[in-house]
Amino acid sequence: MTTTATFLVHAVPAAALDSVRRTGRDAAGQRVEGRLAGGGEPLRCCLRDAEAGEAMLLFGYAPPIRAVAYREIGPVFAHAAACPGPARPTAAATRRTGGDVPGFCGRTTGRGGSAAAGCTTARTRRR
């Protein structure tokens, strides 16, 4: 069975990005990893895909939600240096999955949100 899900993806708040860039530590206290984009990585600072060669960070992010059983730290990409941010506050993302392959944003919180990468479910459709 194939599942098509559309999510609204929210940018990581500027204050959280500033902290990660300033301290070099993520939500779990781990060192962030700097890398050059291969192209197509989903940047959560400006809600666009990275272009090949862009300097970016890979780090663990915990959305600012109340403590629930599904709250988790998930990996996100962001520009290594501050950027102008997103043109819009949210962006739609569609992911088709089959079987037990995880979706675009990870498990949902059961309240229409996701515990990973600041996502909210807009629509889920099974085919």
Score class of each variant (00 low, 15 high):
residue 56 M to K: 05
residue 11 A to V: 03
residue 1 M to G: 15
residue 60 G to V: 05
residue 49 D to G: 12
residue 125 R to K: 04
residue 42 P to R: 14
residue 4 T to A: 08
residue 67 A to C: 04
residue 24 G to Q: 05
residue 28 A to T: 10
residue 43 L to F: 04
residue 54 E to D: 09
residue 65 I to H: 07
residue 65 I to M: 09
residue 14 A to M: 06
residue 110 G to W: 01
residue 8 L to Q: 12
residue 70 Y to I: 01
residue 57 L to E: 05
residue 54 E to P: 06
residue 59 F to I: 08
residue 109 T to W: 00
residue 70 Y to H: 09
residue 2 T to R: 12
residue 38 G to V: 10
residue 83 C to L: 02
residue 87 A to D: 13
residue 61 Y to E: 03
residue 21 R to G: 07
residue 79 H to W: 02
residue 46 C to T: 08
residue 28 A to M: 11
residue 56 M to N: 01
residue 41 E to R: 11
residue 18 D to K: 13
residue 82 A to R: 14
residue 106 G to L: 06
residue 24 G to P: 08
residue 30 Q to F: 10
residue 48 R to C: 08
residue 125 R to C: 05
residue 34 G to H: 15
residue 87 A to H: 03
residue 34 G to K: 11
residue 126 R to L: 12
residue 125 R to Q: 08
residue 78 A to T: 13
residue 75 P to M: 11
residue 114 S to L: 09
residue 84 P to N: 03
residue 105 C to M: 07
residue 34 G to S: 15
residue 85 G to D: 02
residue 41 E to K: 09
residue 26 D to T: 02
residue 73 I to N: 09
residue 56 M to Y: 07
residue 4 T to K: 15
residue 77 F to K: 00
residue 84 P to E: 05
residue 125 R to M: 09
residue 5 A to G: 01
residue 117 A to F: 13
residue 26 D to P: 03
residue 21 R to C: 06
residue 114 S to K: 04
residue 8 L to W: 04
residue 123 R to N: 05
residue 94 T to L: 02
residue 44 R to Q: 15
residue 34 G to F: 10
residue 15 A to E: 14
residue 111 R to F: 15
residue 64 P to S: 08
residue 39 G to H: 00
residue 54 E to G: 03
residue 2 T to A: 07
residue 29 G to K: 03
residue 46 C to V: 09
residue 12 V to D: 02
residue 12 V to S: 01
residue 56 M to E: 12
residue 40 G to T: 03
residue 24 G to M: 06
residue 9 V to D: 00
residue 76 V to L: 10
residue 14 A to T: 13
residue 92 A to V: 06
residue 78 A to H: 05
residue 37 A to P: 00
residue 25 R to D: 03
residue 59 F to P: 04
residue 10 H to L: 07
residue 105 C to L: 08
residue 42 P to K: 05
residue 58 L to G: 07
residue 66 R to S: 10
residue 110 G to P: 03
